[in-house]
Every structure is written in structure tokens, then in C-alpha cells.
């Protein structure tokens, strides 16, 4: 039984790569269009940061954080969202597929549905957002006057990995929700892109109740805020134990389990209502 599940997982992963690779090849056959769209993504998401820079024409700190520090938060959050978006961004089209009846076509193929839904029209151009976030992150690291200890350096990939997992789970939850209301895909944006926007800024600008909600209810604070407190050497405004700064995997695990549960019951619902 256990080995069968493992085999399925492995096959799901392989099928995901096969499907994604096909979409990459297709996008490469329209090279000009691919380059334009990727650059477009780069600049579109870049304007987000330009907006923050413009705000800093009127102020020299937001919530007690400098532009370089906010750049670090922004870059971290953007990188995690970008990686998650690249991996399974088109899963949000699920409602559309259900409405059009094309989800049934996925159900008659010998590949786990989740792998198919994630790889659906895999868009490599999303590396535009990732590159942009990396630029801002790299700039902030050079602009920050920090003593880069080994722990701090290691914390950066740790942040990116956990943050990406958290966003992957949120994307999945948003998609699973569409098994119930196929028109509701926009509500998922509030959590994915909303989660990204909220964590672009230091959480100190929000009331403490909001920070608690972002920690314990929609735990996007673990994407970059708590790890960044450690890296930037900042005190926790809630005064929570220092362990919180390393607790991102817990949040990722809890959200991941919830997402798996939601996805499974969504599929079960679909298979008993056909809609």
C-alpha cells in the first residue's frame, strides 16, 4: 500500500515534468512572443517596487523599516510567490475547466489530477517575475549593512523554500475552493496575490490583531516576515519567542495538509456531483 502511494507520487511528479516540458517547448517555438511576454512580466511586477520607491520620495521609513529592508521583504515574498506561480500558477483555471467540461478530459488520463492541473499550460514566462524579485533581493542585500553570519546566509534559502511551499499550498487551496464555486476564482487572488502584497511591507505597519491573523489564521507571515526578522536582526513586534523565526516549516506543513485535504474532498465532490 505504502509503496503504491510512493509509486503514484513519483509517477505524478514525472508526468508533471513531461507535461510542463511540452509547454516549454511550445512557448520556445514562438520565441519572440516568449521574450516579449517574459520581459513584460519583469517590468509589470517591477512597477510594484517602483511604487514603493515613489512612496519613499515622501518618507524615509515605513513602519520603521528602511527602503533596503523593505526591498529584502519585497524580494523574498516576490521570489516565493514567483516560484509557486511558475510551478502551478494555472491551477487557478480549474473553475474555468470545470465549467467548460474540459476537466473530464483530465479525468480519463492515467495521470494524477493534481499533477495535470498544476502542469496545465505551464508558463515559463513567469521567470520574469522571479528574475525581478531576485534583482530587488540582490540589490537589498548589497544595500543592507549587515554582518552576514553563516546562520543568516543559510536562512535565505530556508526562507525561499518554506515561503514557496506556503504559497504552493495557498494556490492549491484557492483552486480546490473552485470545486464548490466555479466562479469564485477571483477570491483566491485575495490570498495569493494579497498574501504577496501584504508581506511586501514590514508587518509593523499593520495593527497587532492583523499581525496575529497573518501568523495564526492565514499564516503568510511565515513566508518572509519571521525569517527576515532573524536575518535583519529586528525585534518581533508581537514579542513572540525567537523559535517563531524558524517555524516556517510548521506553517508550510499545516497549510500543505489542509490543501491536500481540500483538494481531495474537492475531487470527491466533483465525482459525486459531476459539476
Amino acid at each position: 500500500m505504502a509503496s503504491r502511494t510512493a509509486q503514484q507520487l513519483l509517477w505524478g511528479g514525472r508526468a508533471y515534468l513531461i507535461l510542463s516540458w511540452m509547454w516549454i517547448r511550445v512557448s520556445m517555438s514562438y520565441r519572440t512572443s516568449f521574450v516579449v511576454l517574459t520581459l513584460g512580466q519583469f517590468f509589470i511586477t517591477g512597477l510594484d517596487f517602483v511604487a514603493i520607491v515613489i512612496m519613499f520620495a515622501s518618507v524615509d521609513a515605513l513602519g520603521g523599516f528602511s527602503l533596503a529592508e523593505i526591498g529584502f521583504l519585497y524580494g523574498g515574498s516576490g521570489l516565493c510567490l514567483g516560484l509557486a506561480d511558475l510551478t502551478l500558477g494555472n491551477i487557478e483555471r480549474l473553475g474555468n475547466r470545470i465549467r467548460m467540461g474540459t476537466f473530464d478530459a483530465m479525468m480519463v488520463r492515467p495521470v494524477p489530477l493534481y499533477a495535470q492541473a498544476c502542469a496545465d499550460e505551464f508558463s515559463l514566462r513567469r521567470i520574469g517575475r522571479i528574475t525581478q524579485a531576485l534583482f530587488v533581493l540582490a540589490w537589498s542585500i548589497t544595500a543592507l549593512d549587515l554582518d552576514w553570519s553563516v546562520a543568516r546566509v543559510l536562512m535565505v534559502p530556508y526562507l525561499v523554500l518554506c515561503g514557496t511551499l506556503i504559497f504552493l499550498a495557498i494556490f492549491t487551496l484557492g483552486a480546490a475552493f473552485q470545486f464548490w464555486t466555479t466562479d469564485g476564482s477571483e477570491a483566491a487572488n485575495a490570498f495569493t496575490y494579497g498574501g504577496n502584497t501584504v508581506t511586501q511591507y514590514p508587518l509593523t505597519i499593520y495593527p497587532t490583531e492583523a499581525i496575529k491573523a497573518l501568523t495564526f489564521i492565514v499564516p503568510v507571515a511565515f513566508v518572509n516576515w519571521y525569517p527576515s526578522l532573524f536575518i535583519l536582526g529586528r525585534p518581533d513586534p508581537l514579542g513572540l519567542p525567537a523559535a517563531m523565526q524558524f517555524a516556517a516549516p510548521v506553517a508550510a506543513l499545516v497549510l500543505g495538509l489542509l490543501a491536500a485535504l481540500a483538494w481531495r474532498s474537492g475531487v470527491r465532490r466533483y465525482r459525486s456531483t459531476g459539476s
Binding site: M55, L62, T181, D183, G184, S185, E186, A187, N189, A190, G194, T197, V198, Y201, I205, Y206, P207, A210
Partner: peptide, 17 residues
């Protein structure tokens, strides 16, 4: 309804900034 919800969430976030 989903759209209104999303607008409100972003409204709150931007308000605090």
C-alpha cells in the same frame, strides 16, 4: 461576490501602507 471580497482585502492592505 468573490471580486468584492478581493477588492476589500487589497483595500485593507493598501490602507495600512
Amino acid at each position: 461576490l468573490a471580486g468584492i471580497f478581493t477588492n476589500c482585502v487589497f483595500g485593507v492592505i493598501i490602507s495600512f501602507t
